[in-house]
């Protein structure tokens, strides 16, 4: 008697990951091919072919220029980010729990949040210098408000019922904040810290372009003024890759830190 069951699934599953990966890879190849094609057109001056950009990237790393630039930008970014995180979370907590801070500090924070940081550059130049210190302060200004606003919002958004439960267990004020308020506000705090990473990268590169040119900013400016378009684009791609990697890392840290919610 012939079997009525269908044969096992064919080798190709149209809804499986293979199709997805095929499309992803094809898309990237199509994009690179289009870039190469457009870059080779005679009237394309500011878009160099991707093959030349890749060569410039290789040369940049082989000569050590890109490695040094990347390290310098990372240093500016990390130091500025850590300072911003400490200030942002600390002051954000204070605003979240204190009526006094909400009435005095918070309006200033909102004003600072809405102000384009680039406007401060001429003033920063005078008071902080144009070298590493000035660049770090620019990074701090670039990301501190994001962290601060998210932290204070997180604290304010803790459901009152949670606090009531804590109180019903006779929790001290310290324990109430440590064991109830802070854990409940963690998603907001980590969101602020994650967004802050992206802003810190932008702040670091902007500072390197607009204050004393250094690191990746110096690479970009030098390539632009000498029409070295492949190196300019390689520098831009490198900055984008740096952003991509650091944002992925920040997301990973965020997921790990908030894993208790899905456990």
């Amino acid at each position: 008697m012939a079997s009525t069951t269908k044969p096992a699934a064919a080798t190709f599953d149209p809804t499986g990951p293979m199709l997805m990966w095929t499309l992803r890879i094809t898309s990237v190849i199509a994009l690179l091919a289009a870039w190469e094609w457009y870059g080779r057109k005679p009237e394309s001056f500011t878009i160099a072919p991707v093959s030349e950009v890749a060569t410039a990237m290789w040369d940049g790393f082989a000569s050590g220029d890109f490695g040094r630039a990347l390290a310098g930008t990372m240093l500016t970014m990390v130091v500025g980010y850590v300072i911003a995180a400490v200030i942002g979370v600390g002051v954000g907590l204070w605003i979240g729990v204190s009526r006094y801070a909400q009435n005095t500090i918070e309006p200033l924070v909102h004003a600072g949040y809405a102000t384009p940081v680039s406007l401060l550059i001429p003033i920063l130049g005078i008071y902080t210098g144009l070298e590493l210190r000035g660049r770090i302060i620019l990074v701090v200004l670039w990301c501190v408000f994001e962290i601060l606003v998210n932290t204070s919002t997180g604290i304010k958004e803790v459901p009152p019922a949670l606090i009531d439960v804590g109180k019903s267990f006779n929790a001290s004020k310290f324990d109430l904040y440590r064991k109830v308020v802070l854990p409940a506000a963690r998603p907001y705090i980590f969101l602020g810290l994650k967004i802050g990473v992206g802003r810190a990268i932008r702040g670091a590169v902007t500072a390197e372009l607009l204050l004393s040119a250094a690191n990746l900013g110096r690479v970009l400016l030098g390539a632009q003024s000498t029409f070295d378009i492949p190196t300019l684009l390689a520098g831009i791609v490198l900055t984008m890759l740096l952003g991509l990697v650091l944002m992925r890392l920040a997301s990973l840290v965020e997921r790990r830190s908030l894993a208790y919610r899905t456990a």
């Binding site: 149209p14 990951p17 199709l19 499309l23 094809t26 898309s27 990237v28 199509a30 994009l31 289009a34």
Partner: peptide, 16 residues
């Protein structure tokens, strides 16, 4: 998964 794959392809195709 197919929907996701197509979504992934759209930005690249648009850029092209």
């Amino acid at each position: 998964a197919r929907q996701t794959a197509f979504r992934a392809a759209v930005p690249a195709v648009a850029l092209v």
